[in-house]
């Protein structure tokens, strides 16, 4: 999966979790919390969504690495390969 496709997945997962954000532009390097007032419940649903879509198991200790769209893309890129091999 390319980074563009991963970013599309991040965007789609976020909009599934928070449909009221549908259509919003994502700022790659700003945290979800700062951009969209994403709280812990939204974030948990977001992580669950990503895990379901990719099969990547995301431990709680890794949550800090997924705080921005760019971070989430980078995390998925690094871990998806591991999950699919």
């Amino acid at each position: 999966m390319t980074d563009t496709e991963l970013m599309d997945l991040v965007r789609k997962t976020l909009f599934d979790v928070a449909p009221d954000l549908e259509g919003e532009e994502l700022e790659a390097r700003e945290t979800f919390h700062d951009q969209f007032e994403i709280d812990s419940m939204d974030f948990l649903n977001f992580v669950i969504g990503l895990a379901k879509a990719t099969g990547v198991e995301i431990p709680e200790s890794d949550y800090p690495r997924l705080q921005t769209p760019a971070g989430a893309v980078a995390y998925l890129r690094a871990n998806w390969a591991a999950a699919s091999t």
């Binding site: 812990s40 419940m41 948990l44 431990p59 709680e60 200790s61």
Partner: peptide, 17 residues
Amino acid sequence: LEAENAKRSTAERLLYA
């Protein structure tokens, strides 16, 4: 909570709320 969540899959984790 930390110990519990370490044992649980992503979808089963608890928030402190």
